[in-house]
């Protein structure tokens, strides 16, 4: 609970969350908080439980105990599809794009619709109007990521880093106040990395960013605060400088490398 002290009103937090899956303790009384308007990093060796933290936050994995704060509110049981309505957007490891939809349609999928199947079946004009607004927002998101030229392509026709940009655009199109990024730097090159860094830094303070990432340089460059997980427990937290010199973190990472 001590880790909580710096952020009395976090945008996203787990309070004392435990998760067991198939007899394994994946998370063990984990308390993590991300302050509003800042970039918070979540690091740790493989199998530390980072992605499970995201999965609990986004409702894919139920917490056995403890509670979750999403966008400043306590939530009991959040479903993944309710995230965008709560102002939270998440990316997935890899790209998680829809292969049969064009880039523009992929991005538009991230914008919530107000109308149901009947309005769509009757092609009501207000559905078209909403679609037009969505399309404009999607194009803006594509422009902001510099890939507006690809809007009518299929994901499979694009290089992997561009696909990752599309996935980011889809997360941004709902204009979330909280952005959960799951390994955004995975598989992208140096130039893309710099764009990503700029994007993350320019998101704050309007948005809250939480980041799970293996790429240490990026984490250290963009994060305001970092939590370190190992074997389902928080082993350290602090600013990038504090983390860099934390002996427990060094031990965890060295231990991983020793084992590998």
């Amino acid at each position: 609970m001590g880790y909580y002290a710096p952020f009395p009103h976090p945008a996203v937090a787990l309070e004392d969350v435990s998760v067991r899956l198939g007899g394994l303790q994946i998370l063990d009384s984990v308390s993590i908080a991300a302050p509003r308007g800042a970039v918070t990093g979540l690091i740790g060796p493989n199998g530390a439980g980072k992605t499970t933290v995201f999965n609990v936050m986004s409702g894919f994995v139920p917490a056995d105990s403890g509670s979750v704060v999403l966008n400043g509110q306590h939530v009991h049981h959040v479903r993944p599809q309710q995230l965008t309505r709560r102002g939270v957007a998440r990316t997935l490891q890899g790209v998680g794009l829809f292969p049969s939809l064009t880039v523009l349609d992929n991005v538009m999928m991230g914008a919530p619709t107000r109308f149901g199947v009947i309005a769509d079946a009757l092609a009501m004009p207000w559905v078209d109007r909403e679609r037009r607004q969505m399309e404009e927002r999607a194009r803006e998101a594509l422009v902001s990521l510099g890939i507006e030229g690809e809007s009518s392509r299929l994901p499979s026709e694009l290089p992997y880093p561009v696909q990752k940009r599309v996935a980011l655009a889809r997360a941004l199109v709902s204009d979330p106040s909280v952005l959960l990024l799951d390994e955004p730097a995975g598989g992208i090159g140096e130039a893309d990395m710099q764009d990503l860094e700029r994007l993350i830094r320019s998101s704050v303070p309007d948005r809250t960013v939480v980041l799970v990432e293996h790429h240490m340089e990026l984490v250290m460059a963009v994060c305001d605060f970092i939590w370190v997980l190992d074997a389902g427990q928080v082993i350290a937290s602090g600013t990038p400088d504090q983390i860099r010199s934390d002996p427990a973190v060094l031990a965890a990472y060295l231990g991983e490398e020793g084992a590998a």
Partner: peptide, 26 residues
């Protein structure tokens, strides 16, 4: 209307990747 509308794309999205669809709010 459905196939060429939002609903049709949602159905295809869920078929392609239900996890990604859920994350996108579907």
């Amino acid at each position: 209307n459905l196939v060429r509308g939002r609903q049709g794309r949602q159905w295809r999205a869920v078929r392609d990747d239900s996890v990604a669809a859920a994350v996108a709010g579907i």
